[in-house]
C-alpha cells in the first residue's frame, strides 16, 4: 500500500490542534494545581506548594456545598428524565394520528442553545414578568420567587433541565424499544405474566444497555451544566444552584487565585472521569459476562 507518511501528515493537523487545546491545558492545569499563583497579589510568583491547594480544598465549605447541590441536581434531573422519557417512549410505541409531527415537536428543545433555554426559563419564572409565578399565585396562592427561595430555584433548574433533555431520553429509548423482538412478550402473555412482571423481567433487561448508555450521556451533560443555570439564577440564591461548573466560573476568575482555581478544576475533572469510568464499566460488564 501507499506510504504511511501521507497518513501521518493527514492526521498531523488534528493531533496538533487537540494537543495544543486539549492535552497541554490538561497537563498545565494539573501542574498549576500544585502551585500557588495569584498574579495580582503581593507575591505574583508561581510557587510550588505541594498539596496545599488540595488540603484547603477538602475543607472548603463553598466547594463542598457546591458538590452537594450538584449531586442532588444530577440525581433528580437524570432520574426524572429517565422516568418521564420512558413513559413518553412507551406512549410513542402505539399508533395515533399526527405521530410524526408530535415527535418532531418533542425533539425541538434538543437543538436549542443552553443559554437560550436559560433565558426562556428566566422569562417564564422571574416574579414580575413570568407567567408561572403569576399563575401559581392566582391558582393556589403560592409565591414562587427563584431569587429568594433556595428550594424554588433548585426545583426550577431541575424542571428546566428536564424540559431541555427529556426528549433525548425519549428518542434513545424509542430506538431501543423499536428494536425489541416480539416473541418473548407474546410468550410471556401466553404464560399469563402481568404488565409489571413483563416490564421488570423482560423489557428492562432487554433495554438495559440503551438505558445505561443514555444515563451515561445525560450524567456527563448534567455534570457540566453551566450556561443555563448561570443565566437563570447565576448560582443563587446563596449557593442553592451553584453547581460545580458555575462554581468554577464564579470563583476562579474574579479572585484570580489561579493555583487554587486549578485545584478546583482538577478535582472536578477527576470526579467527572471517575463517574464516567464507573458507568463505562457498568456498560461493559454485562457484555463481558457472556
Amino acid at each position: 500500500m501507499h506510504s504511511n507518511r501521507l497518513g501521518w501528515w493527514l492526521l498531523a493537523p488534528t493531533l496538533l490542534v487537540l494537543f495544543l487545546f486539549g492535552a497541554v491545558p490538561f497537563f498545565y492545569v494539573v501542574w498549576l494545581s500544585f502551585h500557588q499563583w495569584n498574579p495580582f497579589a503581593v507575591n505574583p510568583e508561581i510557587i510550588y506548594t505541594g498539596a496545599d491547594n488540595f488540603r484547603r480544598l477538602v475543607f472548603d465549605s463553598g466547594f463542598l456545598a457546591s458538590l452537594g447541590v450538584t449531586v442532588a441536581f444530577v440525581v433528580f434531573a437524570v432520574l426524572t428524565e429517565l422516568i418521564v422519557g420512558y413513559l413518553l417512549a412507551t406512549a410513542f410505541m402505539k399508533d395515533f394520528p399526527g405521530k410524526a409531527i408530535f415527535r418532531t415537536i418533542h425533539t425541538l428543545p434538543l437543538i436549542m442553545a443552553p443559554i437560550i433555554v436559560g433565558s426562556i426559563w428566566k422569562l417564564m419564572t422571574t416574579p414580575s414578568i413570568g407567567i408561572i409565578p403569576h399563575l401559581l399565585d392566582e391558582w393556589i396562592g403560592y409565591d414562587l420567587n427563584i431569587g429568594q427561595s433556595a428550594l424554588a430555584a433548585f426545583t426550577v433548574t431541575v424542571i428546566m433541565d428536564v424540559w431541555h433533555w427529556t426528549p433525548l431520553v425519549t428518542l434513545t429509548l424509542i430506538a431501543a424499544l423499536v428494536s425489541l423482538p416480539a416473541d418473548p412478550f407474546e410468550q410471556a402473555q401466553i404464560d399469563g405474566a402481568g404488565k409489571r412482571q413483563i416490564f421488570w423481567h423482560i423489557t428492562l433487561p432487554m433495554i438495559a444497555p440503551a438505558v445505561v448508555a443514555t444515563v451515561f450521556i445525560r450524567l456527563m451533560d448534567a455534570l457540566r451544566t453551566v450556561d443555563e443555570v448561570l443565566m437563570l439564577t447565576g448560582g443563587g440564591p446563596g449557593s442553592a444552584t451553584r453547581y460545580l461548573g458555575v462554581h468554577i466560573f464564579k470563583e476562579v476568575f474574579p479572585k484570580t487565585n489561579y493555583g487554587y482555581g486549578s485545584a478546583i478544576s482538577v478535582i472536578v475533572l477527576y470526579l467527572t472521569i471517575v463517574v464516567c469510568w464507573l458507568l463505562y464499566v457498568g456498560m461493559l460488564a454485562p457484555r463481558t459476562k457472556k
Binding site: 490538561f26 492545569v29 498549576l32 468554577i248 466560573f249 489561579y258 478544576s265 472536578v268 475533572l269
Partner: peptide
C-alpha cells in the same frame, strides 16, 4: 471533558 475545567488553563 467538562469545558468549565478547561476555562482557566
Amino acid at each position: 471533558a467538562p469545558p468549565a475545567v478547561f476555562l482557566l488553563p
